[in-house]
Amino acid sequence: PQLPVLTPEALIARIMEAEPPDIYLMRDMSGPMTEATVMMSLTNLADKELVHMITWAKKIPGFVDLNLLDQVHLLECCWLEVLMMGLMWRSVDHPGKLIFSPDLSLSREEGSCVQGFVEIYDMLIAATSRVRELKLQREEYVCLKAMILLNSNMCLSSSDGGEELQSRSRLLRLLDAMTDALVWAIAKSGLSFRQQYTRLAHLLMLLSHIRHVSNKGMDHLHCMKMKNMVPLYDLLLEMLDAHIMHSS
């Protein structure tokens, strides 16, 4: 079946509607911050966000038309990047702080009680500063986040039967549609053509930094799990294990 053809404007409207709500940790953070309590809070929040992320992905036009295995692979590959992109967006107006949720922000000092976390913290702060410099617009942000999902894994279904090929070509068309939407969003700013394609390049280059921080974060979380620093359960555990399996 053909994908419904949406104009860039209509596509952006649909992915804006797909945005998850604010997610609260809803825990008492008044006690002392230790490695265990910080990790517990972060993983607890991530687990909640993951459930909303799946709902978000399903609302991206065309995503549920991909074959189910491809949907699974894409989400398994991109989940931490998507979480980090959201974190950067929430933190953009708070220089030097990371706003994990409306009720959980961490300073560098608080982050430093988790072994190995400061390195990732600093990378996230640096990437957030870049987002601030670029004055990322909400429409550009939602496009980039959808692109992270759709671009997360180029080697999808390994067998090349008819259905898999069809799903792959659908995915490429979705990525093209998302690129058109991003170009449209950039064009709204009234920049010259030259400035527009420079901005497009700057925005897309952000994605390679996010991939890098996400890989670092994934290693860190895996390490924390191995040391039994934090009990992982449910969806987060499943997503971490799947990612480690894909990357090994």
Binding site: V51, I54, T55, K58, L68, Q71, V72, L235, E238, A242
Partner: peptide
């Protein structure tokens, strides 16, 4: 990936 599959395949209410 049981939980992920379950969430992907449930119909939105």
């Amino acid at each position: 990936h049981t939980k992920l599959l379950q969430l992907l395949t449930t119909k939105p209410e």
